[in-house]
Design a protein around this nucleic acid. Structure first.
Length: 105
DNA sequence: CCGTTGACCAGGC
DNA sequence: GGCCTGGCCAACG
């Protein structure tokens, strides 16, 4: 994958403040990419220690995905939720509250 | 060169 | 909210 595009995604990632989230689609439209491409970039090249990729969720507030140490399952999603809760993000059920989602960034 | 597969999305029921 | 549909586009075999 174009490492140029990866850099753009990661750079934008850092602009999401603690306690808020954005969506795959929002990042994608800001960068002129396809949402699926953003998802792939976050999945294949995530650096969980450095970049807060857990602050990206689906447009309806559901979690989307998360990958740690080549593990991608329900457990990894619970980790993602936990990180969000620690940031102060509020949930209604399994979805992030809509007002916390940044549609533009 | 295809067919399938995604950390997706908007629109309809 | 759930389920489907059609659209999207790069990666993989």
């Amino acid at each position: 994958m174009n490492s140029d595009k990866r850099l753009k995604v990661y750079k934008l990632l850092k602009k999401i403040p603690r306690g808020r989230v954005s969506t795959y689609g929002a990042l994608a439209s800001r960068l002129g990419m396809n949402p699926r491409l953003v998802g792939r970039i976050l999945g294949q090249n995530s650096h969980p220690e450095i970049y807060p990729c857990y602050r990206v969720v689906r447009s309806d507030g559901s979690l989307g995905g998360y990958t740690i140490d080549s593990v991608n399952n329900e457990h990894s999603l619970s980790v993602k939720k936990k990180k969000l809760l620690r940031d102060g993000v509020k949930f209604s059920g399994e979805r992030v509250e809509k007002k916390l989602i940044m549609k533009t960034i």
